Computed example of a mutant assay.
Amino acid sequence: MSGEDAEAIWRRLAALTPARIALGRVGAGLPTQEVLRFGLAHAQARDAVHTELDVDAVRGGIEGLGLSTVTVASAAPDRTTYLRRPDLGRRLDPDAAAALARAADGPVDLAIVVADGLSARAVHENAVPLLAALLPAVRGSGWSLGPVAVARQARVALGDAVGAALRARAVAVLIGERPGLSSPDSLGLYLTFGPRPGRSDAERNCLSNVRAAGLTLDLAAFKLHWLIGQALTRGLTGVGLKDESDRALEGPMVGAALGAPDRSS
Rank of each mutant, 00 (worst) to 15 (best):
A165F: 07
R247L: 15
R204Q: 06
Q153S: 11
A22S: 11
G24S: 04
F222C: 03
E7I: 09
D243K: 09
A99R: 15
L189H: 06
G229K: 03
W143G: 00
V26S: 12
A111T: 06
D160F: 03
K242W: 14
V123F: 07
L181R: 02
Y190E: 03
T32W: 10
G3V: 08
R178C: 03
G198C: 04
R12A: 15
L236V: 15
W10V: 14
L83I: 11
A122Q: 07
G235S: 05
A75M: 13
S141T: 10
A221M: 06
S141Q: 13
A157S: 11
S144C: 06
G89F: 00
A99H: 09
A48Q: 03
D160K: 03
A133E: 11
G259T: 05
T233L: 14
A127Q: 01
L207Y: 05
A165E: 09
A48E: 00
A137K: 08
G61V: 05
P77H: 10
L227S: 06
L191D: 01
A154H: 00
R85C: 09
L53D: 03
A151P: 04
L181D: 01
A14Q: 04
L88M: 09
N126P: 07
Q153Y: 15
S186D: 04
G259K: 04
H124V: 11
L40R: 13
K223P: 03
A96P: 02
V148F: 12
V55W: 00
A19K: 15
D109N: 08
E34D: 00
L16R: 14
L134K: 01
G117A: 01
A115V: 07
A104H: 12
R204C: 00
P86R: 02
A43T: 12
G176M: 06
D87W: 00
D116N: 09
G140P: 02
S186A: 15
G163S: 04
N126V: 07
V162K: 01
G238V: 02
A221R: 01
V58R: 08
E4A: 12
V70H: 00
P77N: 09
G176V: 04
V173L: 06
G66Y: 08
G180Y: 01
L88T: 00
R169F: 03
A164S: 14
P86D: 04
G240E: 10
L215Q: 05
P77I: 10
L249W: 10
D262M: 03
T216R: 14
L92D: 00
R85A: 10
R11C: 09
R84L: 15
V35D: 08
S141Y: 11
L100V: 03
H50W: 15
S265W: 14
D105S: 15
A202M: 12
A172I: 14
V72W: 03
P195W: 04
E7Q: 10
W226D: 15
A43I: 09
S119H: 01
P261M: 07
L13I: 13
A41K: 02
G24C: 00
V113W: 03
S265N: 10
V210G: 03
A221V: 05
K223H: 10
R102S: 15
V35A: 12
G255A: 07
A101W: 07
V148M: 12
A97H: 12
L232D: 02
S74Q: 01
D47L: 15
T216Y: 08
R139S: 09
V114H: 05
R199W: 03
I228S: 02
T81I: 11
Y190W: 12
A164Y: 04
